[in-house]
Design a protein around this nucleic acid. Structure first.
Lengths: 219, 219
DNA sequence: TTTTTATTTTAAGGTTGCTTAAACTTGTTA
DNA sequence: TAACAAGTTTAAGCAACCTTAAAATAAAAA
């Protein structure tokens, strides 16, 4: 299984999750940073191999086998992230970049060693679920965007979406991290921004866009 | 830097060390498991890039820059080996196979984290020296083959050469590992085999060939 | 319904790292 | 010294994965 195929399958899966909609060639091409033609080629090829359900001009879907492979890669990615963060102390941004490469070059055996070392964890340091060996994805029941928390309710941050250099800076600026306890003070309908209070008593206003990427459970 | 180039440089370095002689295209081809023609191609290409000193029909040598790169890869390989063995408990054979892939996909930064985590070690679990960030190779002064130890002398095993499924089985069979203390009881000049005594009092005879791959320091 | 626009596919071609087979060097042997 | 054997290089070609540009299709607007 080549790195290209790995990434192709993985990103169909992720794109499907994130947008909850049809995965198009151009979406995927943008995400993989290759031409749309390259996506068509690969889709047809993996269609023949029974990993992707490919019909010309139609949305891309994984077959059951394709899904299994995608989950395997994602398992490796997220276990590496947690390991590098927890054991070696890498920051959340580096952790993603390293995992992005290591995930393709790690045997199932090594990954299981790492999983055992970590106590078979369910979530990575970004709050994303780590698929099990059998492909079962830990449930994120009750995890909702911060924007759905009502005024005066408390919640615990579970997940910060889309970690990249831009969002990472924002998260750091506001001290947002998984496990943080917040109370929603006010919601401003005007622009969707949300005023929250930290446990230490300090208060800040988060933009609606930022808040929609912060996921939490009600307390 | 591609995996192929990494491996090309690394194996010129290692072959040079091991045979202490000229590295030929066919030697290298055998080791890399590619055709001789592929080696010629790559040699010419890396010659142009200033990483290999290439002259047609002559032995292959690394330039200074090529040497630096080779040492960087070897550093990564050996740090991974030690880490996987010491921290995750993988056996010495798996450790090599995993490192063989991970070495090409690990950033310098991650490697430095691992090195720090391990306390900047000097030797990997096979007893091979781990090059430093600056490319300095820890000295193996006083490390000699077991065949050079005289009768009735004691020594400490420092290194078991050529770990593969064949040798590994032998090493396991005789309980040979780095750190082991041995006393040479008798040398049989007939076939070069050597009788040794373990610390627990048990005695075995090692073949001359096996003994020549066991390296140690006098005690 | 026809036309326009956006998206997708096809076609042709490039690069990398490999292959086999033929041609060529080199060094040794007769 | 001529010829041979071993080893090396060159030549031609292949597969994977990508590119750009032209052709085809689908979906939306007129």
């Amino acid at each position: 299984m080549s790195v290209s195929i790995d990434n192709f399958l993985k990103n169909i899966y992720l794109l499907n999750q994130e947008t909850a909609g049809a995965v198009t060639s151009s979406n995927l091409a943008g995400r993989l940073e290759v031409s749309v033609a390259a996506v068509t080629d690969m889709a047809r090829k993996l269609g023949k191999q029974g990993l992707v359900d490919y019909k010309p001009y139609k949305a891309l879907n994984l077959t059951e086998r394709g899904n299994e492979l995608a989950l395997k890669i994602i398992r490796k990615h997220r276990l590496w992230e947690l390991f590098l963060h927890q054991v070696l102390g890498l920051d959340l941004l580096s952790v993603h970049q390293e995992a992005e490469r290591l995930e393709h070059h790690t045997s199932d055996e090594l990954m299981n060693h790492i999983s055992r070392f970590l106590g078979h964890p369910d979530f990575d340091p970004h709050g994303d679920p780590i698929p099990g060996i059998g492909g079962d994805v830990p449930s994120e029941k009750g995890v909702i965007p911060l924007t759905e928390i009502l005024e005066n309710q408390q919640c615990i941050v579970k997940k910060l979406r889309y970690r990249n250099s831009e969002t990472s800076d924002m998260y750091d600026r506001y001290g947002l991290m998984t496990g943080l306890v917040l109370r929603v003070i006010r919601v401003f309908p005007f622009d969707g921004s949300i005023e929250v209070k930290y446990e230490d008593g300090s208060e800040v206003v988060l933009s609606g866009k930022l808040a929609s990427n912060v996921f939490c459970v009600r307390k």
